[in-house]
Design a protein around this nucleic acid. Structure first.
Lengths: 128, 128
DNA sequence: ATTGACGTTGACGTTAACGTCAACAATACC
DNA sequence: GGTATTGTTGACGTTAACGTCAACGTCAAT
């Protein structure tokens, strides 16, 4: 049964290689709010997407609060014009911040590139 | 006296906008090891560069341990061939990891770009 | 009816990355 | 010689992001 529409907590845990505890923790922190069947949690596709976003944010080095900010921007929001402008500003800021983060990482990569060159040069001299 | 060769802890703290406590903490963790004048710490240009690397790593979302790994790659090391090959491998791995991190961030940016489009479209319709 | 798999809610433990505060030393200034 | 500034070493406090239990519910299979 591929491409299911609903998931249990352990299915998601296995798929994304995190523990159930972690997923429940994200809910405590307000990043997820799955439906319930009795007391059991049921996750739909939207919940799954949110979890993916959280974990991507984590790999990117974001805190849960920062990931939450991003997730909240995806929410429909009240179709008020002022709110849209506000959201647009926030999106711009966040994009700029993420871009600065990329710049920092690229600097780190370039720094390592020099280390690499020195290594290769040393190995070459040694070989001859 | 611009471009000094030595710095006190509070000079560096002010320049990089961190507290002295933070700089001392980095030393506790083995990321810095400044000289001493009596019991006072004295930082030279190399120390300053290391601090810059640490803070860049921080902005990039790295842990102190990860930043230390990178800093250690800059160290001369024993000019043994096996060690060079080993270092080269580590540098390659780290570069690849940082690149994956960039990819994740770019995905986040692209996701936000869609949010932006929806916002702008909504504002346009509203304007007319 | 009991065992086992899966889930639940607390509650407490842990690590990283500092902040905060106390008690003290040295140096500079008035 | 007092005092203000800048530094030092502990020691304890704090927040984020979970891990690790304990105690319990529920449903299917033996």
């Amino acid at each position: 049964m591929p491409d299911a529409t609903h998931f249990t907590i352990s299915e998601l845990a296995k798929e994304f290689d995190v523990t159930s505890r972690t997923i429940r923790f994200y809910e405590e922190k307000g990043l997820l709010s799955p439906a319930r069947n009795g007391q059991h949690r049921i996750y739909d596709k939207a919940d799954r997407v949110r979890l993916e976003l959280i974990l991507r944010g984590k790999r990117a080095g974001l805190s849960l609060d920062e990931s939450r900010e991003i997730i909240d921007m995806y929410a429909p929001g009240s179709s008020n014009e002022r709110q849209y402008r506000f959201l647009l500003d926030k999106v711009n800021d966040k994009q700029a911040q993420l871009q600065r983060q990329i710049d920092d990482i690229q600097q780190l990569i370039m720094g390592l590139q020099e280390v690499r060159s020195r290594c290769e040069k040393a190995l070459k001299l040694n070989k001859h």
